[in-house]
Amino acid sequence: MSTLREKILNTATDLFQTRGINSTGVDTIVAVAGTTKMTLYKHFVSKENLILEVLEKGHQDFQSWLSEKLNSNTKKPSEKLQKLFEFIEEWVTSPDFHGMGFIKASAEFPNEECPVHQLSSEQSRQFRQYISSLASEANIQDADGLALQLSLLFEGAVQAEQMKRGSGAMKYAKKAAKILIDGAIKA
């Protein structure tokens, strides 16, 4: 990736997180990145394409970070599942947290036919599938059911933290997740 392309992508990421996607125009992105529209469109064929790449990168970065944290802190599948919300809480309470891209984007692009909404929905499904695979590895009988419950807790708590930092939502989501995970492990 060229450094100018990277700069545009990073600038767009920062602006989308802090100002919103629809509130951030191409003019603002190029002004803050110190480039031109022509250069932006050389690297990204449209604003929509740029949004999709920002979402992809954010999702991949989060998934890689979370997987690395889980894999480097424990090898036992049930412990990975139990530590999941501990690490998510660490992420949500970090100063760099500005919300979850797919949650924000789905709210700004509610039309299910829109590629941004479709990608957001797919990323939500992928995260739920990730939790389901952790649950399956831990021999949870209803891995998909537990994954749906935990992803609802995750998405709700992240939304609450996006709306008001320090809301305590993640702390309570972590407690609820522990009850659900402990119950599923015992079943």
Results as ranks from 00 to 15, higher is better:
118 Q>F: 05
81 L>R: 03
116 V>F: 04
90 E>L: 09
55 L>I: 10
45 V>H: 13
139 N>E: 15
57 K>F: 07
127 F>H: 11
106 S>I: 13
90 E>P: 00
36 T>P: 02
46 S>K: 06
95 P>F: 10
76 K>V: 15
109 F>L: 01
100 M>R: 05
107 A>Q: 09
37 K>C: 07
114 C>I: 04
84 L>Q: 04
96 D>K: 13
82 Q>I: 11
140 I>E: 02
104 K>D: 01
79 E>L: 13
82 Q>T: 11
75 K>E: 15
63 Q>E: 12
100 M>W: 10
143 A>V: 02
121 S>K: 13
87 F>I: 03
122 E>S: 13
86 E>S: 12
145 G>N: 02
139 N>I: 06
37 K>G: 12
68 E>G: 07
109 F>P: 01
67 S>M: 05
57 K>G: 02
113 E>V: 06
125 R>L: 11
111 N>Y: 07
81 L>C: 10
78 S>G: 03
72 S>E: 15
135 A>V: 09
96 D>L: 10
59 H>T: 11
119 L>C: 05
121 S>D: 13
144 D>T: 10
136 S>C: 09
94 S>I: 05
62 F>S: 04
67 S>W: 03
71 N>R: 11
144 D>H: 09
76 K>Q: 15
114 C>A: 13
96 D>E: 15
114 C>G: 01
48 E>Y: 00
39 T>F: 06
55 L>K: 00
74 T>N: 10
102 F>S: 08
63 Q>K: 12
97 F>D: 06
130 Y>C: 05
129 Q>K: 14
131 I>D: 07
87 F>N: 02
50 L>Y: 03
107 A>V: 12
63 Q>W: 03
130 Y>L: 11
109 F>N: 01
70 L>Q: 02
73 N>W: 04
87 F>W: 08
53 E>C: 05
43 H>S: 08
57 K>A: 14
93 T>N: 14
125 R>Y: 10
115 P>M: 05
124 S>K: 11
130 Y>G: 08
132 S>D: 13
114 C>H: 15
105 A>I: 03
110 P>R: 13
58 G>P: 00
114 C>F: 06
127 F>Q: 08
97 F>K: 03
108 E>V: 06
63 Q>P: 00
89 E>H: 08
98 H>I: 01
97 F>C: 04
48 E>N: 12
74 T>L: 06
67 S>L: 09
48 E>P: 01
50 L>H: 01
143 A>Q: 03
